[in-house]
Amino acid sequence: MTKKNIIACTIVALLFGAMGAYVGLSKNKQAAAPVTTTMAPGGSSPVTELYALSLPDAAGATQALSQWKGKNLLVNFWAPWCPPCVQEMPELSAIQGDFAGKNLQVIGIGIDSASNIAAFAEKVKIAYPVYVSGMSGTDLSRHFGNTTGGLPFTVLIGADGEVKKTYLGRLKFDQLRADLGKL
Rank of each mutant, 00 (worst) to 15 (best):
E162M: 14
V124L: 08
R170H: 15
L156H: 03
V163Y: 12
V132D: 08
R142L: 00
V155I: 07
F144Y: 06
Q175F: 14
L156Q: 00
P152C: 00
L156K: 03
S141E: 12
K125E: 13
A127D: 10
E122P: 01
G169A: 03
K123G: 10
F173C: 00
E162K: 11
L176S: 09
Y128P: 02
G158V: 09
L156E: 02
V163N: 11
L171Q: 01
E162L: 12
E122Y: 01
G149K: 05
L171R: 03
K123V: 03
A178W: 08
A121L: 11
R170M: 15
K172G: 07
D174W: 07
S133R: 08
K123L: 01
F153H: 01
E122K: 09
K164V: 01
N146K: 03
F144M: 05
A178I: 11
D179V: 04
G150F: 08
S136D: 12
T154C: 02
S133C: 11
G134V: 15
L156N: 01
I157R: 03
D179R: 05
V163K: 13
G150R: 07
P152M: 05
S133M: 13
I157M: 07
V155Q: 07
G137W: 09
V155G: 06
G169S: 03
K125R: 14
L168C: 13
D160Y: 11
K123I: 05
R177L: 01
Q175K: 14
Q175P: 04
F173Q: 01
F153V: 01
D174V: 08
L171A: 02
E162Y: 13
D174C: 03
E122S: 06
G149A: 08
L171P: 00
D160K: 10
T166A: 10
G169H: 09
G158I: 11
N146Y: 01
G169K: 06
G145R: 09
L168T: 14
G158Q: 10
G145W: 10
Y167R: 00
G149T: 04
Y167G: 06
T148E: 15
L151D: 00
T138I: 09
E122H: 02
K172T: 05
